[in-house]
Structures are given as C-alpha cells and as structure tokens.
Design a protein around this nucleic acid. Structure first.
Lengths: 151, 151
DNA sequence: CTTAATCTCTATAGAGATGATAGGGATATG
DNA sequence: CATATCCCTATCATCTCTATAGAGATTAAG
C-alpha cells in the first residue's frame, strides 16, 4: 500500500495541473476540495517544490503552479519522492542500489530474479505514465493542462 | 521494499523445497545456512505452517517439510501472508477491498486507474511464478523438488 | 504602514509496524 | 530421563506514518 502522503501528493498534483489557465491553487483550496489535512498538505507541497516539480508564490494571491509540464512528471517520480526507492529489494534499485547484506551470490539469488520480473513490469507502467496522461483519460476533465507556465 | 520477514520466509521455503528426498530441514539448519536470526525464523516458519504451506515434526529428527507441493505456492501467496494485501491502494485489492475513505468517485479516480495498471502488471508475475519455478531456473540447483511428500 | 493571506520551516507526539530477543512449554527420540 | 526440536507468548527498541502546532517570511491591498 502506498502512503497517504504519496496519495495526497498525486491528488494535489492532478489538481494543480488541471487548473485552467495555469492559475495558482492555494494549499487551502486543495485541502478543502480533497479533504486533506491542511498542515500536512503544506509539508507535501513543500516537498514537491523542493523536488523541482512545483513553483510557489507567497502572500496574498499566492499558491502553487506547475514548474515542469505535467507530461514530464511520471507517477514513479512522485512516488520516489515520498516513498523512497520503488524496488522491492535494495539490490534491484538503480538509483539507490544496495547489496543485501546477507546475500551470498546476487547473480544466482532466486528471490532477486523473481522480484526483478515483477518490478520491471510495474516500473514500466509507473515510469511511463504521467500526470498529463492520467488527466487526459479522465472523463470528467477532458482538457488537460500541460505546459502553461506564464511566458 | 519487502520486509525482512517476507524475504526470510521465501529463503526458507526455497531451502525446504530444494531439500533432496523431501527430508526435513530444521530451523537451526536453515538459520545457519542463510544467516537468519534463529528465534525470528521460528516465528516465520510457524506462520508458514499455520498458512498450510509447511508441515512440521517435533522432537529429535524433527524439522520442516513442504505440505503443499512447491509448484502450487506462488510468491504472491507468501508475500500476502507476511505483508498483507499487495495492492497499492485498498480499493484495488480483491481479497481485502476497502473503499478509500476520502474518495469521491472510485470509477473516475485517476490515481486508482493508473495504479490498477501497475498493480496488474506486477500481480500477474507474483501470482503466477511459484517456488518450483524459481528453483527450476536456478543454475546451482537444476533438480527441482516438487511434490515429494512421503506417500 | 497595517492588515490579512499565504507559503516556509521546525518541533513535537501518538500509533503502529518492524525486527528482533527471550524464556519457557510441548513433543518426540533414544 | 536427557536431549533436540518445534510451539507459543511476551517484551522491547527503533523507525515510520500521520498528523498537529506555532511562529516566521513574503506579498498584495487598502
């Protein structure tokens, strides 16, 4: 199961990316719409900003907008920010490889071999599907916000 | 990342299933071979027994043997015993379905839709690959123990 | 300049999961 | 009876998750 944090982050991103005209969305508005505890959401949005995904404006009329276009942000990328490596075993992570301390022979490890298959299958989905893809297939929201950064 | 518990369980199962002639393996032997804390492993083997996967014998000459043949035990089944539902969202679990409390419209939820793809991909691997499959592909152990229950 | 709205940052805390460790009880063998 | 093994329960330290809280920084409006 994914964490609430990651789920909230994805909800928030979908909302911000879907915002017409690329207008800023406030954390309060997102929290109200999606029933996310406001102060918890603030932390999450801050993480997304630090990750270079969102841009923020402070003060009155402040809020959040996409920094990078929604079609460049995959579900996998967002998950990794909040959950760490997606790999089921440390020895299968590309970005965060660690040897299993107690593993005798990685190349012959049956467990590693089997999980590699499973991981590869889900990784290919998570690392290819973007926020924009998800919105594009949404029946209630046919118009996808992609790159609407103010020029 | 999967838990140590699940990893230990899989290691133990692979060892027991690979045992020539279906001889019993003791928890001490498994713990020594695979560097698993012995008392921790005992709990795990007990869980596997309660799940109907292993059979045990007490006393001298005791140990564990497979109850069900190794080609009927999938990685997914073992994982579920120790990690609970494999689904990334409660609303995607078949056996343990729960509605996301804060979800407005499950059918239209973009997050659910995307994770369904990813989950389906990994589930198909985990629920089809068995302990016997894993051993069969192991270069160091070409002879697979399948159904060796004493008649 | 003041006020209000918003983002920013850090601290704290309860609940539960994780990963063991420990001790003894039950059972089988010889 | 002695020994080896499985069986069962309790306990514990650590970490993570899920917040909650409060104050500071920034901006816009009046």
């Amino acid at each position: 199961m994914i964490s609430n944090k990651a789920k909230y982050a994805l909800r928030a991103l979908l909302a911000i990316a879907a915002q017409h005209g690329g207008e800023a969305l406030t954390s309060i508005e997102i929290a109200k719409r999606h029933r996310i505890p406001h102060k918890f959401l603030e932390q999450i949005l801050l993480d997304l900003k630090k990750a270079g995904i969102l841009e923020s404006r402070r003060g009155k009329l402040g809020g959040y907008v996409m920094l990078r276009p929604a079609d460049t942000i995959t579900f996998g990328e967002v998950l990794r920010i909040f959950e760490g490596p997606l790999a089921p075993l440390p020895c299968l992570s590309r970005n965060a490889y660690r040897r299993c301390e107690d593993c005798e022979n990685e190349a012959r490890c049956e467990i590693r071999r089997e999980f590699a298959r499973s991981y590869e299958a889900s990784r290919q989905v998570l690392d290819s599907r973007t926020i924009a893809d998800a919105l594009a297939e949404s029946p209630a929201m046919p118009f996808v916000a992609q790159d609407r950064r103010a020029g």
